[in-house]
């Protein structure tokens, strides 16, 4: 009996990201309420919900860009510390793609991608540059390598940001509304890159308003409102049969908007 349970634990792979009873307040506002979430290797978890639901905050707490007031965040079996070198080290294992790209304005595209591997992972410049060029090719901006961010379109910048994350060989990548700041014609190119990543087996947590992406790519959809996770399920379940009234209302309002 004991033996078989142990085997079971080993077979059941530890989650890459796990949140246990996470609570966060902004002043008196309870923005994250008893959040429990676990993301397995290769899963694509899409978080949706109305603005102000806490979905962005949740995404940012995962690599502690936002602190939490109680609970625990575990990355690949290691509890996320509050500060120090250990925190930086764990962060280097979790990529993050922001709404506003946040490329380093004074560095070339190539340098944006190599700075992490060189400075944090202590790779040689040559090795880092060769790999960076591969990644830039993969996201389709290799011809822009020697330009600076301001010379690129939003869509191109966001793809560079994805390459910058990939260069760290992360265990998972967090996407915080990656297409919200983009012009409509550029949203597709970024979503395509993300879809390819998902197909290649990257573990992803994606906060987005792109319902079609959620339908096609998500292994799981999480619906948040008022700082709580209200629903969790496969995209088919969720979009066809939302259980809560708030999820129904939300999907209804989006449908009206999209049609």
């Amino acid at each position: 009996m004991e033996q078989s349970q142990k085997t079971f634990e080993i077979l059941e792979e530890a989650p890459v990201i796990e949140l246990r009873d996470v609570n966060k307040y902004f002043g008196s506002l309870h923005v994250l309420q008893d959040i429990n979430l676990s993301v397995k290797k290769g899963e694509v978890v899409v978080i949706i919900g109305p603005s102000g639901s806490g979905k962005s905050t949740l995404c940012r707490t995962i690599n502690r860009l936002e602190s939490i007031d109680s609970g625990e965040i575990i990355i690949d079996g290691v509890s996320m510390p509050d500060e120090g070198k250990k925190l930086a080290e764990i962060r280097s294992q979790v990529g993050m793609v922001f709404q506003s790209f946040n490329l380093f304005a004074h560095k070339t595209i190539l340098d944006n991608v190599t700075i992490g591997p060189i400075d944090v992972l202590h790779k040689s410049r040559k090795e880092a540059q060769a790999e960076a060029m591969e990644l830039l090719k993969r996201v389709g901006v290799e011809s822009q390598a020697s330009k600076v961010p301001a010379q690129l379109s939003g869509g191109q910048q966001q793809r560079v940001a994805i390459a910058r994350s990939l260069a760290m060989h992360p265990k998972a990548i967090l996407f915080d509304e990656p297409t919200s700041a983009l012009d409509p014609e550029m949203i597709g190119e970024v979503l395509n890159v993300m879809t390819e990543l998902a197909q290649d087996g990257m573990t992803m947590v994606v906060v987005t308003h792109e319902m079609n992406f959620a339908r096609r790519v998500a292994s799981r959809v999480i619906f948040m409102d008022g700082g709580k996770i209200l629903e969790e399920g496969t995209p088919d379940e969720f979009f066809a049969h939302p259980k809560t009234q708030r999820a129904k209302d939300f999907l209804e309002s989006i449908k009206r908007h999209e049609s």
């Binding site: 502690r64 936002e66 602190s67 510390p81 509050d82 500060e83 120090g84 925190l87």
Partner: peptide, 8 residues
């Protein structure tokens, strides 16, 4: 600065 932890 980040929001300080206990040590900070």
């Amino acid at each position: 600065y980040e929001e300080p932890g206990k040590k900070a």
